[in-house]
Nucleic acid binder design. Structure first.
Lengths: 190, 190
DNA sequence: CACAAAATCTAGCGCTGCTAGACAATCGAG
DNA sequence: CTCGATTGTCTAGCAGCGCTAGATTTTGTG
């Protein structure tokens, strides 16, 4: 069935186009600028076409967030390779995490700040997200001491997330970010 | 001029009514339910009246946030009184902070999660906010060791804020919150 | 009581996410 | 090759949003 196959391919193509356009628009002008009308105009289709691919705008945001989880996991994977002991690995992970958030703020928003219908704290959470957490767990578990590794990792993650969000919201001056990361890593590695 | 004085009082009264109604509505149904129309209906005035008190909706949110800072500072002040050493004080502060956020999620949102025109990281920041930070600084500075106390406190705050936001967004299961606080306090107090 | 000033409301703008129903393109059967 | 049905897409519109200009009512004063 070559005909329907081609259609399917074109449809998948357009699906990707919607997601990447939404992401680009969000990264360029912020998520508040990503409206269904503007998005439709950019992909050169009418609004209802969006709704034949996604249940609504939120689902588009979720799709972007999913891309983000995959990319963050990739970045963390690369960073976790540090061989100079757990402390170096944790520093690299922390830096990578914060840099990711700084470099792609809209992406980070989609992943963590905007309301999302994505499952999270249970086993239905998307694989890349689980992998990202597992990468943190690998390195942090080594320095958790008596503390349950999962719990320890959650607290570490919260520290990073807190730094990222408070800085981005203007609640922390962004001058000393790297020193704050150091302080956090020092705390974590005792 | 008793007439204009009475008017002024009534105006101030209505001002408070707007803020408290916005807050109550947000706490009951979330900020997305706080629209200028609904708010106007609740206070039994028409929409434009809101704009004779506030530049726009954001300024109303800021006013609610300001109330929140004052209340959080009060709560932290009460908690900081622990006399069993810095560690007990820090535990009390951390618990108080998280409980505040859990108990008044909409208020916490107004303070930290919603876009705000409030000055923050500079000397123009509202007094209660500065006091809240100073309270944290008082106790945390004692255990900061070599680290600059301000920086240390910022990292601690980020940890608390991260725990709060990740939990509330469903990113962390809310079962082990108090254990996570313990872990964080353990880290901070070495 | 009449008038000026102040306070308040009605009505509307341009925008949002979303959708019903009209229309056009495409495909399979005869 | 044509025709009817199916699929795909678009136009137009709904209800709601933050916000505001201008009409209207209420108020205090001479």
């Amino acid at each position: 069935m070559p005909v329907s196959e081609r259609k399917e391919r074109e449809r998948a193509e357009r699906h990707r186009l919607i997601v990447s356009t939404a992401r680009a628009l969000a990264e360029a002008e912020g998520w508040e600028a990503v409206t269904t009308r503007r998005l439709a105009e950019r992909i050169e289709y009418s609004q209802p076409v969006l709704y034949s691919h996604f249940r609504g705008k939120d689902e588009i945001v979720d799709a972007v967030a999913l891309e983000g989880f995959a990319e963050l996991a990739t970045a963390l994977r690369a960073a976790a390779g540090a061989t100079d002991g757990p402390r170096a690995a944790i520093t690299a992970l922390a830096r990578t995490y914060v840099e990711f958030a700084e470099h792609s703020p809209a992406l980070y928003d989609a992943m963590f700040n905007l309301r999302s219908g994505l499952p999270f704290a249970d086993e239905a959470a998307p694989a890349p997200l689980r992998e990202g957490f597992a990468l943190l767990l690998d390195s942090l578990g080594r320095v958790a001491g008596d503390v349950e590794p999962g719990l320890f990792t959650e607290v570490a993650w919260a520290g990073l997330h807190g730094l990222v969000t408070l800085t981005r919201a203007g609640r922390l001056p962004d001058e000393h970010t790297s020193r704050r990361i150091e302080v956090l890593v020092d705390l974590l590695t005792g």
